[in-house]
Design a protein around this nucleic acid. Structure first.
Lengths: 294, 294
DNA sequence: ATCATTTGATACCCGGAAGGCATCATGTTT
DNA sequence: AAACATGATGCCTTCCGGGTATCAAATGAT
């Protein structure tokens, strides 16, 4: 394999068409340059220059090789620059997981903010439930998650993004929508309930269980995605407790009713990340966010 | 400037993630390899590998640099070949990028056509996704691409080669294969979907998103190569939307189902090239093609 | 025709870089 | 705690690349 010095030498000679001047340009003397080119030609296996003891010309193979040589040099000069940019967090890829619910509320503004702080970093978005985000953060497939508690604060660091209240999704025209007052637990006694999955959406499940004594009899479905829940409500399969941002989904034939004051616990959405940060772009983001918060 | 040996050393270590094995592969001992990498890191100005006294991992800067290093090595290996070809009297080399999907349909006939128009030009084929082809065309590493929209028509000129319809790839014996009718969007409601990468395979991604109401919930993988998608389908990981030519891949345990008429949008394959043409062989090809089309 | 000039190639020498061997340092496993 | 695994370091030797001096061939002026 040839060396970069040989390429640089060849480029210089090809441009000057004169060994002496090329050598001067390269801050060396002519003899080693001559040998460099000879060696290069031997490695390439083709004559690149025609020496005619009075002038130097490029062969057609030499012209083609000059192209390649320039390309190689340009690439070789750029490579460390990009590597340094990534190491400093100024560019690269940030893999962000988000839950369906957050996608309809905070994700847009958050992306705008990210674009302000790390504009050269590509954001790779993946919609995942909290559990998937946690395992993604552990394996390093994900850099940042937008998810709900609980998660292990030993391994994950986090920042509270916002709280929102829970509301009840009911099919349009349902008797409860006619109530003049806020909803209470009593109102659900005989209503079929679409429940959160205790494994996939543990946070909501625990929350709802805490809010009202469940009557398992009435649980008609257990699902993990808010969107799915609301769709089922729209289809008249029952009621569901969903975070307020679900109202932004724009699903037809569903109404959202506020819960009795005090009973409507609030749910949280956190930005969270693995404490063992490996992605410089994330390190930079967090550092700049710290500054912004103080 | 670093040397090709350092690049080769880095690539070996990055692939083996083990200095000893990498050294063995390079027919050298471990100590000089360690120093080689250290020197390379010093030159690049960034940590490329994380040594943890038990295992070696790539930093994100290292990942990016690995990419560049591979490109450099590939380019460096190809350069002498093209030079020799030209020196041996053939009039040039045309470097053609193609997508895996096009490789199974149009590539064969196209090569025949090229051989008719520019018989003395060697064709250098590389399988690349659309995004890689575009960057290759920009840097001049590629002369001609066979790829799908979108691309910037300011910098690239193109010619539509053909259209084909999309089909659904399902694991053999899947319930949907028993359906007597064509598939509709409703049929996927609860099916895991193997999705195209929004960055690497933007065209397909946009198309599929357009075809069926976003149900991110069911996306199990995002991949960029059609072949990978079909393999994942074969492995029973889910369904996938692929162009009709994927049926030619001959992968076992996959069936392809047509989409409901009207819903199955057609996808396009274009031949495209950089408007700033530098390769005379490409100029000749295009000129002769113009003649043929008139 | 001869000789000075130009320009790339060759001969020879020297310093530094890269590889090999032996060994160290550190973390893991039994 | 001892053996093991694995990357880093120290030291020696070899070889490659650059420098100086010189050669070789072609040109052109007298």
């Amino acid at each position: 394999m040839f060396t970069f010095d040989q390429l640089a030498g060849f480029i210089a000679v090809a441009e000057e068409l004169h060994f002496g001047r090329a050598a001067e340009r390269l801050n060396m003397t002519q003899p080693p340059l001559s040998r460099q080119i000879q060696k290069l030609e031997k490695i390439v296996g083709a004559e690149l220059l025609e020496r005619d003891n009075r002038k130097v010309t490029l062969t057609s193979a030499g012209e083609a090789f000059l192209d390649e040589a320039r390309r190689l040099m340009a690439l070789a000069e750029r490579a460390p620059v990009t590597a340094r940019r990534i190491a400093s967090g100024r560019s690269g890829v940030l893999r962000v997981g988000f839950t369906a619910a957050s996608g309809f509320s905070i994700l847009g503004p958050l992306l705008g903010e990210l674009a302000g702080i790390i504009p050269d970093v590509d954001i790779d978005l993946q919609e995942l439930v909290t559990g998937e985000q946690l395992s993604g953060l552990l394996t390093g497939e994900l850099d940042l998650g937008l998810a709900r508690p609980p998660f292990d604060s030993e391994t994950f660091d986090s920042h509270l993004l916002y709280r929102e209240s829970m509301v009840v999704a009911v099919p349009a025209g349902h008797p409860l929508t006619l109530l003049a007052r806020d909803i209470t637990a009593e109102d659900f006694k005989d209503e079929p309930l679409i429940m959160h999955s205790p494994t996939q959406a543990r946070y909501f499940y625990d929350l709802v269980v805490r809010m009202l004594p469940i009557r398992h009899a009435n649980v008609v479905h257990t699902v993990s995605q808010i969107l799915t829940m609301v769709s089922l409500v729209a289809a008249g399969r029952g009621l569901a407790f969903v975070p307020h941002s679900a109202t932004l989904l724009g699903i037809k034939d569903v109404e959202f009713l506020p819960l009795e004051a005090g009973r409507g616990e609030e749910v949280e959405l956190h930005a969270l990340w693995n404490r063992r940060i490996t992605n410089p772009a994330l390190a930079r983001l967090l550092r700049d966010l710290e500054f912004a918060m103080e």
